[in-house]
């Protein structure tokens, strides 16, 4: 059996999102889009979002290929941000990145990331932090793109 640290990394909720990814695919009417990649791992992701006039994320989808951590993180991210405003989603990106730095789940209720906190264990595996962060950094790129047209940002500096 794998040891406890491995169980901590590959939490059941995470494996569930990997096996049954939510919001996987493409949107017909996306007005925000970004590509992200971890060239060293071969992970790559595309995030598409439909944001309405009030700045609320009406729909979101991800596609691409990668390891279980990157795919699960993408799936969980889309579940979380769907229905939130872009400002809330961008705050969640900050909170998530903080969690990757500290390995601790957010302490305040307003920063609560729900199931996503299962990814806190990834912080103990520094080489995997990039995998978990890819979806969030790409979401940030997608939402910060001011144009309605699709924007492609290749995060090759990661």
């Amino acid at each position: 059996m794998p040891d406890a640290a491995l169980e901590d990394l590959y939490r059941e909720i995470l494996l569930d999102h990997y096996r049954n990814p939510r919001h996987h695919g493409h949107l017909d009417a996306a007005n925000h889009k970004a590509d992200g990649a971890n060239p060293l791992c071969g992970d790559q992701i595309t995030i598409e979002a439909t944001v309405n006039a009030d700045g609320r994320i009406e729909d979101i989808a991800f596609s691409g290929a990668g390891c279980s951590i990157s795919q699960a993180s993408s799936s969980m991210m889309t579940v979380y941000v769907a229905g939130h405003t872009t400002a809330e989603a961008l705050r969640a990106v900050e909170t998530f990145q903080q969690m990757m730095l500290t390995g601790e789940a957010p302490s305040t209720a307003e920063q609560d990331l729900g199931d996503i906190e299962a990814l806190a264990g990834v912080a103990k595996f520094p080489v995997r932090v990039k995998c978990a962060s890819l979806a969030w950094k790409t979401l940030q790129q997608a939402l910060q793109s001011q144009t309605a047209a699709a924007v492609t940002t290749d995060e090759r500096s990661e």
Partner: peptide, 11 residues
């Protein structure tokens, strides 16, 4: 994914 293979083998 090969990264997951490597991670579990390391354990």
């Amino acid at each position: 994914h090969p990264h997951d293979i490597g991670q579990v083998l390391d354990s």
